[in-house]
């Protein structure tokens, strides 16, 4: 039985709107084009299978990122599912050349500090700064509360700042007792 047209239309809308963001997410987290192609294809295969579960509106994209994240994790665990769908894609993505950039010393230091963070901290930071996601969106990707994301992000940035020793100068604490408020 062929899927009804509206199902296909819904998928195509999701695909058009999210292909590049999901591809970006995947490319930034994979070592080579073949892996990126597999993960991208597997992610959208899942979207097709799970079309009824994809939330409407703005929540669709973080939901898709959540799927891509899971596919990526499975991939890293060795559960690779190569598909025949991706030959052309894999060949095009294999052309990605990561030119070693000439980085300034402060970028090197930032890269080193970032690399030394735990996976969880790197994940929230990269979702926020590379994927430009809001806290609410990251919460959907990671499947946790917005507060948990906010706290993790806050701690991640703080750790980064401490590693770079660029904490802003401490304000002089006042000796006077402020207006009282019972704790």
């Amino acid at each position: 039985m062929r899927p009804p047209d509206n199902r296909r239309r819904r998928f195509e809308e999701l695909y058009q709107a999210n292909h590049d963001p999901v591809l970006g997410y995947v490319v930034r987290r994979t070592a080579n084009g073949h892996d990126a192609a597999d993960i991208l294809a597997e992610t959208f295969m899942t979207v097709w299978r799970r079309l009824d579960d994809v939330p409407a509106g703005e929540k669709a994209r973080p939901w898709l990122f959540g799927v891509a994240r899971r596919v990526l994790a499975n991939h890293r665990r060795g559960e690779r599912r190569h598909t025949a769908l991706t030959a052309r894609l894999a060949s095009e993505l294999s052309a990605i050349q990561r030119q070693p950039r000439k980085e300034s010393a402060d970028v090197d230091a930032l890269a080193k500090a970032f690399a030394e963070l735990s996976d969880g901290y790197r994940e929230v930071l990269s979702l926020a700064d590379w994927e430009g996601m809001s806290i609410a969106e990251i919460a959907v990707v990671l499947g946790c509360s917005a507060n948990a994301v906010r706290i993790r992000l806050h701690r991640a940035r703080r750790r980064l700042a401490r590693a770079l020793s660029v904490d802003p100068p401490r304000r002089a604490a006042r000796a006077q007792v402020p207006e009282g408020d019972s704790a």
């Binding site: 930034r28 990561r98 930032l110």
Partner: peptide, 16 residues
Amino acid sequence: TKISISRLNPVTDNEI
């Protein structure tokens, strides 16, 4: 001060 890792982004959206 808010430290951002934007500068470490390996691939920009335009490149993607």
